[in-house]
Design a protein around this nucleic acid. Sequence first.
DNA 1: CTCGCACTTACACCGTTTGAAAGGATAAAT
DNA 2: ATTTATCCTTTCAAACGGTGTAAGTGCGAG
Lengths: 222, 222
Amino acid sequence: MTDILIVEDNKELANLLCDFLRMENYTVSVAESGEKALSLYEKYGARLVVLDIMLPGMDGFAVCRKIREESNTPILIVSAKTGKEDKLNGLTLGADDYIEKPYDIDIMLAKISGIFKRRYGVDEYVCGDLRINKATRTVYKNDVQLEMTAKEFDLLSLLVENKGKALSKEYLFNQIWGSDSFSEQQTLTVHIKWLRQKIEEDPKNPEKILTVWGVGYKYESI
Amino acid sequence: MTDILIVEDNKELANLLCDFLRMENYTVSVAESGEKALSLYEKYGARLVVLDIMLPGMDGFAVCRKIREESNTPILIVSAKTGKEDKLNGLTLGADDYIEKPYDIDIMLAKISGIFKRRYGVDEYVCGDLRINKATRTVYKNDVQLEMTAKEFDLLSLLVENKGKALSKEYLFNQIWGSDSFSEQQTLTVHIKWLRQKIEEDPKNPEKILTVWGVGYKYESI
DNA sequence: CTCGCACTTACACCGTTTGAAAGGATAAAT
DNA sequence: ATTTATCCTTTCAAACGGTGTAAGTGCGAG
């Protein structure tokens, strides 16, 4: 998964920001259009999307809406207009923050680092009787450590990060396996099953990882 | 726990914001100084702190740092200064967002609602006694959850999003089933019936999903 | 009153989910 | 290099629940 997906049709600007971000050790990819952005996002996922609103073709708001439909991935809106409507629009669509163009690169970097800290800097997610530590990649249930394989841990993390949100099977698969294979469905469901056996009191009647029929799965919101 | 703790020494301004927030059904409390803010926070907690930086005595940055030491409660910084230094300071201390004084009340409300959405996953349509959450794909009627199938949920969402508007059967079918099949009519009406059985008090005399003769259906506008 | 549209009901089909288990791949150990 | 163990992928069959179809009934408009 890429750290940051930059959506910006001005190549020069995109490359500049890209360089700065790479100096801070983020992995970065760039899309010049809304369509490209969505296809990159579908395929490889991203931990943050820096999204210019003024794009040729599909505009930034549409991209924002699409991404929000399937996940809570943080979105930082970049807008040239100073109009209040753009900001309001972005915020109500679920963007995490916005910045005006032209922006000061230091402010941009500070905002980005802030978003990462807030969202991913939390080493430990606590959900009911589970404690999930992303830094050490360990999971504790009532202070007893559960052994997790790599895929199991990634899957659990993804579900917990989007706690409460129904995530489509397709999204889950693409985020963890990177792109589409043939019998993706089965592979995912098998891993879900193993996860449930490890974390649920009664794996037959799951109370943490819930099935959303016709869609996918979600982690209980409480 | 209070929803929002406003830290602001200008009483007039604080009360104005307070009123607007209460109109949006948040519970609000106000502190006029940093010390007061911390003691209120210790005692009652808060789901969001709106923090003015310029305070008599202990300044906002100190309050921000203190709160961050013990929790990840979201913090929205308010500052009169336009200097870049302030923004950087606030963001690197772990504040979630930043707004400049004087601020537009709409932007402020949007930012606050955005923080709540992101952090607490509150993103729902409320219509009478129904609460529909698209992210979690859940429907509550008077705080009791209703089980919905995928198609039922999609159909209800579509109707509620266009609350009050009469939608043609053809439109409804195309939006949810993607394209036209032969006996689309029946299929749709059957699903409407199931929906009514779940959400209406008296499915025989629907008051929510109303039939528009010769056209289709609409969701009651109230 | 009559016609046509909407509603109801029941049933059969099909897709999704689930569980168990075997075969492959990969990494660690000897 | 070979063995061993662990993890990942794939497959299959069975059960469940959702979905669509069709026929009969009811109801509103003109």
